[in-house]
Design a protein around this nucleic acid. Structure first.
Lengths: 227, 227
DNA sequence: CGATTGTTTGACACTCATCAAATCTCGTGG
DNA sequence: CCACGAGATTTGATGAGTGTCAAACAATCG
């Protein structure tokens, strides 16, 4: 099962067994936390089931979602390998979730003994860095509607379900707002607009993309926003 | 000299010699480019003299500065190690600059043969990732004046010069705007306000921080902006 | 069938980008 | 050494884009 984990592609069967032996399962129910920002990074996690969001909270209490994690993906690893030794963000379960927790020291030992794994981790980190740089630029230069479109397109590719009508996503307006860096009111207005234009169907904590292509154009800025 | 490079802390003298032998110097004059975004990442660079900014440009031509590089720091390395094999950003010289260029293949070979170096690179990458996550949150949640204060404080610590009156920085309003994600007009207004309050002195492509503490408070949000 | 939680919509305020134009600074060539 | 011109900066006027607040409505759950 753990073979599916992208971070363990180059781990030997024996190493995987060691990880299984050294790690321990951790279940967190919806809205619960795996860990909090600035806490000492004691473990790295591999998500086995559910969905987790990585968030930062401002002193004023406003939440920003940095990314959402799906099954078989690693999280908390930056804290585990970085000399700072604290988590840079909090990990909150979007649904009831189950993860395999590996002590940071074991994780670091594994990486030291297996350069191929370390290289994989470097690639994952640089990939994520690329993405953050892009999203940073988007945040600075693009308008809300375009940013929301990007978020929806990205989430669709990552966590969307194919259904007869199109692609289904289950996120509340609030969730989308925290990811796109806006408010739930603005998300609501934008989604209503898209629904009027026939691009999507909306529901409570749910939306269905009818025309992925049009949304992609909105995200790319090649289709003008509604008047 | 190359011992000062943080990325080569764990390189053996022999490896450093090899790098010197395999690499080649590259001088770029002010406003020139070391490389462009999306170009194949042929080399990683170590800056020896000058200053370089890493930028992304939007289709509309708007510039966003991701970070500024000072002497003895590595740049272009993400492109060199990432499987994408292209640069995620452009590197433009802020002043006449000189860098040592190492072919990506040589750089990767070095990393493969020396896991300690790879680990250093991972630490540098995760550090930068932390910073990008924070700046992303700041961009989403904070107002312009606070963001500009953050930029100035950060640049002061990184590239500021101590002079009798305080800390001197040489950046144009346009430079600061591209870093803070705003316009040169807004930067000008904000700096004028600070000067009226006696926090800084301003000049052409130059500012002097008189009260670093007050600026730090502005950056942290604990000092209210001007009325 | 309440109660809770999510969503919609309107009214309004406010930050900040945009545009225009004047002013300032510095380097260069006469 | 001064005048000129290019580029940097300031400042005002204006408006678009979004956040904020309030209130009503809808969906889901026990």
């Amino acid at each position: 099962m753990l073979q599916r984990v992208e971070a363990l592609r180059h781990a030997s069967p024996e190493e995987v067994r060691t990880l299984v032996r050294l790690g321990l399962p951790r279940a967190v129910e919806e809205d619960g936390f795996f860990f909090f920002q600035d806490d000492p990074a004691e473990r790295a996690y591999i998500l086995l089931a559910g969905r987790v969001k990585m968030i930062q909270v401002t002193p004023a209490g406003q939440q920003v979602t940095l990314r959402t994690i799906g099954p078989y993906r690693l999280f908390g690893a930056i804290g585990a390998v970085n000399p700072t030794a604290t988590y840079p963000a909090s990990a909150q379960a979007l649904q009831d979730s189950l993860a395999w927790g590996i002590a940071s020291s074991d994780f670091r030992r594994l990486l030291q003994n297996n350069p191929a794994l370390l290289l994989d981790l470097t690639h994952m980190t640089t990939d994520y860095l690329r993405e953050m740089q892009e999203r940073y630029r988007e945040m600075v230069t693009e308008q809300v509607e375009q940013r929301i479109a990007r978020v929806v397109v990205r989430l669709a590719g990552q966590l969307g379900r194919r259904i007869p009508e199109g692609i289904e996503l289950t996120f509340s307006r609030q969730d989308l707002a925290e990811i796109a860096g806006t408010t739930l009111y603005t998300v609501s207005r934008v989604l209503s607009g898209w629904e009027k234009r026939g691009l999507i169907l909306t529901g409570r904590e749910r939306l269905v993309i009818l025309h992925p292509h049009a949304l992609a154009q909105l995200a790319a800025g090649s289709l003008p926003p509604a008047p």
